[in-house]
């Protein structure tokens, strides 16, 4: 059983979705996350153990990404493999047998239409066991406020790619903090720095998806 769990974890790390997937080339025709998850469930392995295995795989690939050992395509393949597992685990989330670590609301700020960085953070955070509410791009402050109001236990992530939309990010942070002082806000994106994050009153600055996960875990630990 341990071996099966390790294999699932490895499939996530390598982005091996299923047997027919040609990627990665060195794992061609091997079983992937899809088949191995079904096998694990058939053998009676608990869904939360499978989810933990996925989290380990996502953590490893996330750390490799932080160290520039792998790049966006590898991370996306890992996310795809993770999705294959999640499709099988979905019923267990609905029954409450498996629980998420918390809620993460994410969006690209108003006036900015770039979504790759935001999507990566979204997928890696979800892959690490969080419920992600992705609001998409060009998200107005009011939309964030509305969603926070309906999810008072969430943490918020704001993304921006343009230097010119950082001003909108700053406004959104200020509005969130004014209306919901207890809600933690993480900011990130190409032009954003630690210094800028502090200046706009955000609780944290995430340089990459894995760092966003670490910040969330830190908040969770209190």
């Amino acid at each position: 059983m341990d071996d099966l769990i390790k294999k699932i974890s490895y499939c996530i790390e390598r982005g091996k979705v299923n047997k027919t997937a040609p990627y990665p080339p060195d794992m061609k025709e091997q079983e992937g996350a899809d088949e191995l998850t079904l096998k694990a469930l058939d053998l009676g392995i608990k869904p939360f153990e499978i989810l933990d295995a996925c989290n380990v795989g996502m953590k490893i690939i996330g750390e490799k990404f932080s160290r520039n050992e792998v790049f966006v395509p590898e991370l996306l393949m890992a996310a795809k493999a993770m999705q294959a597992v999640m499709n099988h685990l979905k019923p267990y989330f609905q029954t409450g047998e498996v629980k998420k670590k918390g809620k993460f609301v994410i969006g690209t700020v108003a006036g900015d239409l770039h979504d790759i960085g935001k999507n990566l953070v979204s997928m890696v955070v979800e892959g690490n066991g969080w419920e992600v509410i992705d609001l998409g791009v060009d998200v107005k402050t009011n939309k964030f406020l509305e969603v926070i109001n309906n999810n008072r236990d969430c943490t918020v992530g704001l993304s921006a790619l343009l230097t010119t939309t950082m001003a909108n990010m700053s406004t959104t942070v200020a509005e969130i903090k004014s209306k919901f002082p207890d809600i933690k806000v993480i900011v990130g994106g190409a032009p954003v720095t630690q210094e800028a994050a502090q200046k706009m009153g955000a609780d944290a600055y995430g340089d990459n998806p894995q760092q966003a996960v670490e910040i969330l875990e830190h908040f969770l630990a209190g």
Binding site: G15, Y23, V72, P73, E74, L76, M77, A79, K80, Q83, I116, N119, M123
Partner: peptide, 11 residues
Amino acid sequence: EGELANSYIAD
């Protein structure tokens, strides 16, 4: 279609 890496590279 869920082909995220291909979509990213095509983009």
